[in-house]
């Protein structure tokens, strides 16, 4: 009899803990404006340790990585050399365009676009299993970082801040299925919606907003500036494949992000205009 009572208590206790955890994760999986105190305290307490480990093991990681990828590194090195030569030629051409652009701007009396205020931050942590496309950076509330600030690198758009503690902030990457960015095709100026996708993590799903959109493989997608979070004109990615929609009235495309998220170590947070 007594044993039965204990067994029932154990089962009830187990069910209670499971339900409590499911409820807690349901509540905290919503788009939260702030983290719980426990999360803030733990993140702030561990962030110096995480930062120290990330910094001090960089050499060790690079050495192991180089050993594991020696063959591919050689090929990549060769590819990069060729890319560098091509880019140098492109830079020369772009400088010429820039000078021309400045002259035209003056002529048309346009204000030169004000540069954004940016703050450099170091990536100190990631979701270990890659379940969630998030990064933790070493700048937080006390540095003026706020929710929904855009995060970029010189390569392009990274994501937006979704939660902040005193010394850290969490960045939701544009590759996350919950992320959506208004984009524009650089060549045709057609508007698109760029979302993270679940079928092929790491790539972006590009949805055309109209049926007659002019989209081709290789087109660059840049941010449209609509929505108020991401500034206009930041490189998002390049179209890698295109398919017809379900009823052939819309087009769906897949884009490769401009940013190499696997090797991201430093980012810039856009803190204001």
């Amino acid at each position: 009899m007594r044993r039965e009572v204990f067994t029932n208590r154990k089962v009830l206790g187990g069910v209670f803990v499971i339900l409590a955890l499911i409820s807690l994760s349901f509540v905290t999986s919503r788009d939260r404006t702030r983290l719980t105190s426990a999360e803030c305290i733990l993140r702030d307490a561990l962030s110096p340790v995480i930062s120290f480990v990330a910094e001090s093991t960089r050499g060790c990681r690079d050495a192991i990585g180089a050993l594991l990828h020696a063959g591919s590194l050689r090929a990549e090195n060769e590819e990069l050399r060729m890319e560098l030569a091509r880019l140098q030629a492109e830079i020369l051409q772009l400088k010429e365009y820039q000078r021309e652009n400045e002259r035209l701007r003056k002529l048309l009396d346009f204000d030169a676009q004000a540069p954004y205020k940016m703050m450099a931050a170091r990536v100190i942590g990631r979701d270990p299993a890659n379940w969630l496309s998030v990064l933790i950076i070493n700048k937080g509330k006390k540095n003026g970082i706020q929710r929904n600030m855009a995060v970029v690198t010189f390569e392009g758009l990274v994501g937006r801040i979704i939660s902040v503690t005193n010394t850290t902030a969490t960045v939701l990457l544009i590759t996350d299925p919950k992320s959506a960015v208004g984009g524009v095709l650089d060549r045709s100026r057609d508007l698109v919606l760029v979302e993270g996708q679940t079928m092929d993590p790491g790539l972006l799903s590009v949805k055309a907003l109209t049926s007659d959109v002019d989209i081709r493989v290789g087109d660059s997608v840049i941010s449209s500036g609509y929505g108020g979070i991401f500034p206009k004109g930041i490189m998002i990615g390049r179209i890698s494949s295109i398919s017809e929609g379900k009823y052939r009235v819309s087009k769906r495309a897949v884009a490769e992000p401009a940013v190499d998220f696997a090797r991201l170590e430093e980012v810039l947070v856009i803190t204001g205009k």
């Binding site: 994760s25 993140r43 561990l46 979701d127 270990p128 969630l132 998030v134």
Partner: peptide, 13 residues
């Protein structure tokens, strides 16, 4: 969950 996750309790469960 608290340090690297987005939903507190998911990994705990």
């Amino acid at each position: 969950d608290a340090v690297t996750g987005r939903a507190l309790g998911l990994s705990g469960l």
